[in-house]
């Protein structure tokens, strides 16, 4: 069975774990990997080369925008779509994400079905591309 590899980079371990459980419960084709910080996330993205990365913005040491920048700079990860997932729900963050990285954006607290819809939509779009 084809697995859709998803990398969730979030310093909130519990949140990552429950999202992983939900996504994998909702769709058994999802294979969700977790990274607890940006640095680990970049490493795992390079090694795992996931179909989609769910990325928290506010993280210690390396925030989500720096992670995206690293990913875009690396050929192996530059094409991987990223869904920004953060509690930082202000307009400025959205503008920044949209203008600089042209990435999708969802805000915490997001419900699992909603997140799944977003993931599916992004995956579908990138597959079309």
């Amino acid at each position: 069975m084809f697995k859709k590899k998803i990398l969730l980079i979030d310093d909130e371990v519990d949140f990552g774990r429950i999202v992983k459980m939900n996504l994998e419960l909702l769709d058994d084709s999802y294979d969700v990997s977790l990274a607890r910080n940006g640095k680990e996330g970049v490493k795992k993205a390079i090694s795992l080369r996931p179909h989609l990365i769910i990325l928290d913005i506010l993280m210690p040491h390396m925030n989500g925008f720096e992670v995206i920048k690293r990913l875009k700079e690396n050929d192996k990860t530059s094409i991987i779509p990223v869904v920004m997932l953060t509690a930082k729900a202000d307009e400025e963050s959205k503008i920044m994400a949209a203008q600089l990285f042209n990435e999708d954006y969802v805000t915490k607290p997001i419900e699992a079905p909603e997140l799944k819809e977003k993931i599916d939509a992004v995956l579908k779009r990138t597959q079309n591309i």
Partner: peptide
């Protein structure tokens, strides 16, 4: 607060989603 509160809220809502499903 938004960041600090929304993370636990995210966990809770995801937990509720999970339990609802299960």
């Amino acid at each position: 607060v938004a960041h600090e509160v929304k993370n636990p809220l995210g966990v809770i809502i995801q937990g509720v989603n999970y339990l609802s499903k299960k």
